[in-house]
Design a protein around this nucleic acid. Structure first.
Lengths: 236, 236
DNA sequence: AATACTACTGCCATTTTTTGGCAGTATAGC
DNA sequence: GCTATACTGCCAAAAAATGGCAGTAGTATT
């Protein structure tokens, strides 16, 4: 294994630990000496990896991702850039900022002749959409989804009726003119879509919901599909 | 310079050549022996770089991009993925395919715990938009833009009037419900927007247009800005 | 057909980089 | 104070990378 390859492996290994892990253990898993491991860690940190090491504790990696070298064709780069620009225009604030950051990271390393191929753009039409919540709220939803936590939702329906419920959020849908939170509703015992602009408040509960997010997502998707096929059947 | 660094440099150098370049020259530019250069080329090819070497000719790199290792935070990855999904839904066919390809390249290398954070999606609302042209046509436009070539445009206006003109294309705008080609029109001596669904045919001419694409882009952008500020002024 | 130029490979001695071990310092938690 | 751990400097040993050379083969030019 080349040193370069091993460095990427080290990150992968680090990522599998949720709690601090000692350099000794890491060195054993990689079949290298402790001395070499310390050197490797230093190299990764120099390259921008957010590895935290504390004497007496061990190492822990901040949740971030080290994208290994990848080949993209010109048009694939175009697609990545256009997509990221779209998110920076239409995403909620924290996501939009993240898109801008990612974009500048990529553009920074683009050679000039590829940069010249950047011939697409996504423009916002009309005013930015309004969130009823403070700008942090979609972040709350994202956090809940990531941690598979239940949330207590205070919601106002399209007809203006207010309701309180506990739901299991698992995905957010982005559209040009709005965003929806998709979740399993404990009250209705079914999947429900919530327009994020009508969410009055959301509070993360300590309870993890009992099913996996992926699982819910797939079941919901399947249900959507069968719904639209029933619609088609009625039409014919 | 580490070997790893040098490999990236080699790609950068290769990219600066439009015509085949001999290994000898490359070796000189990198201050390495010819023997080592051959080894480096082999390594890059093994990693997926599309470098073509022919005896008696030299090396030429297919227009593609080698993204060096980059750190992204969780939310930045979310933004990249959501954007790419959006393009795969709303882009024209070749671009959409490129987005899908780029997406799978990225997902392939994502570690499981980051993959789990993929909690966003972009859904198409309504049927895919229609291109009047064959699916290759946006590719033609992209090619022309990339090469800064004039094109002969056969266009039908919103009111149904047909026209023929020579334009200097420099960017394509993507919207949820349509795409526009932005170009300088030789006939009108001004910038014009063309809805791609009403382009009847487009033909790349051999003439390069005399100004740089970036230049046109910036001038057009500035004009757009002053236009919208005039609009605002009239409103007030 | 001859020539020049080039890609590409195998071999091997030399050079450079990487590695592992050891000794030592510093800090956190108990 | 004790233990576990991060982290550094030094150096010899091991491994990887390098450069030179000789040779094969393909392409373009004359």
């Amino acid at each position: 294994m080349t040193r370069t390859e091993r460095l990427l492996t080290l990150l992968q290994v680090l990522r599998t630990y949720r709690h601090p892990v000692s350099g000794q253990r890491l060195a054993e898993r990689l079949n290298i000496s402790l001395r070499t491991l310390y050197r490797d860690i230093a190299t990764l940190q120099a390259q921008g990896a957010e590895i935290e090491g504390e004497a007496g504790i061990g190492y822990i990696l901040k949740p971030s991702f080290f994208l290994p070298p990848l080949m993209f064709s010109q048009i694939e780069i175009d697609a990545l850039l256009l997509g990221t620009r779209w998110v920076s225009q239409y995403g909620d604030e924290p996501l939009s900022k993240a898109a801008t950051d990612a974009l500048s990271k990529i553009i920074e390393v683009l050679p000039i002749n590829i940069k010249n191929g950047m011939n697409t753009f996504a423009l916002r039409v009309g005013p930015p959409m309004q969130e009823s919540l403070t700008k942090e709220n979609l972040t709350i939803l994202r956090e809940a989804i990531r941690g598979q936590k239940k949330i207590h939702l205070n919601y106002q329906s399209q007809e203006g009726k207010r309701s309180q419920r506990i739901v299991w959020p698992f995905t957010i849908g982005y559209f040009t003119d709005g965003r929806i939170l998709v979740a399993w509703c404990e009250k209705q015992r079914d999947y429900r879509h919530f327009n994020t602009s009508r969410i009055i408040s959301a509070e993360i509960l300590n309870d993890r919901y009992p099913r996996s997010r992926d699982n819910l997502f797939r079941e919901w998707q399947a249900a959507q599909l069968s719904k639209s096929s029933r619609k088609l059947a009625r039409k014919n």
